[in-house]
Design a binder for these strands. Sequence first.
DNA 1: CCCAGATCGTCAGTATACTGTCAATCGACA
DNA 2: TGTCGATTGACAGTATACTGACGATCTGGG
Lengths: 170, 170
Amino acid sequence: MPSKPAAPITIDAVYAAPGYLFRRMQQIAVSIFMEECKAFDLTPVQYAALVAIHTHPGIDATRLSAVIAFDRSTLGSVIERLQAKDYIERKPAPEDKRIKLLYLTKSGAAILREIIPAVERAQARMLEPLKPADRKALMGLLVQLVDLNNEASRVPLRAEDALEHLGKGG
Amino acid sequence: MPSKPAAPITIDAVYAAPGYLFRRMQQIAVSIFMEECKAFDLTPVQYAALVAIHTHPGIDATRLSAVIAFDRSTLGSVIERLQAKDYIERKPAPEDKRIKLLYLTKSGAAILREIIPAVERAQARMLEPLKPADRKALMGLLVQLVDLNNEASRVPLRAEDALEHLGKGG
DNA sequence: CCCAGATCGTCAGTATACTGTCAATCGACA
DNA sequence: TGTCGATTGACAGTATACTGACGATCTGGG
């Protein structure tokens, strides 16, 4: 069969590439999140970390990274900043001196409650330009794709496995 | 009408949020790109910049940032690295001492030709888990959404406007 | 021609991301 | 029980991103 002719190298091919579109959309999403939440001094990553700690109090940093699929090295500085803002506290685990357990402070629990409406506004705004049926379709495809590509990412999501130490997962 | 009851704050809500999914997918996309292109020492951003300079030789950094919708400050260091690798060169514009014009070197043009197959493999792999019809549907929705949200991003895409100085746009 | 405002590249500061490495610690096995 | 492999948190190095500021420069109005 005839080999495909080499496509000309143009910027239009980049505009249509999935990788480029995912990057653009992520930047737009962060921009909208920061705008809606600017009163709260929380980034999207910090927000997700707070929610995960709220859902799994006493989790450690390594398991937290698996639960939200964020890089463990990066998470170190995220945790540091959340601690500096007094939204979380770290307690050494009595049975394992390597581990530091993470808990929300009262401040942390409070800001989480307060920021929810802004976060929901942000999430809605990201999809707002689409028709409702298209929003559903896009989210469905995206959930599928992220799930099926889970192993391709550097930090695969391990929502269940990560929680065995808390006595909730196994 | 009854107000919606406050949803419980759980990590499952985060997993289903558009912003979270866009972030995950972007990370997966970068991971796949770097894997397919590891022989070439080029990041996705550097690749897009090279393609844009190839398409618009003699473009300056500010217009380049508009053409690929990347942050202008960040682009400074991207350009620096591409120059250090001898893939591009910068020439002062004779008619405006502020501006430095960007051109591909022979090395830059060569690596661009060579990397194309790997980039195409990467782009294909990102969508591979979906059925062909779903790939088309997802890309269609994403193109729409990115376009309709263009103004919401910090650096909106200005593919046309940016090129007037080159005598090709207006 | 001169000046006010806009533009260009640059830089400092902050926040994600990823790679690779390290010391401290743990756990399992000989 | 002693040791080795695995795990944990930390760190160094690189690369995107965004905000805000700055000096050099250009441009248009008077």
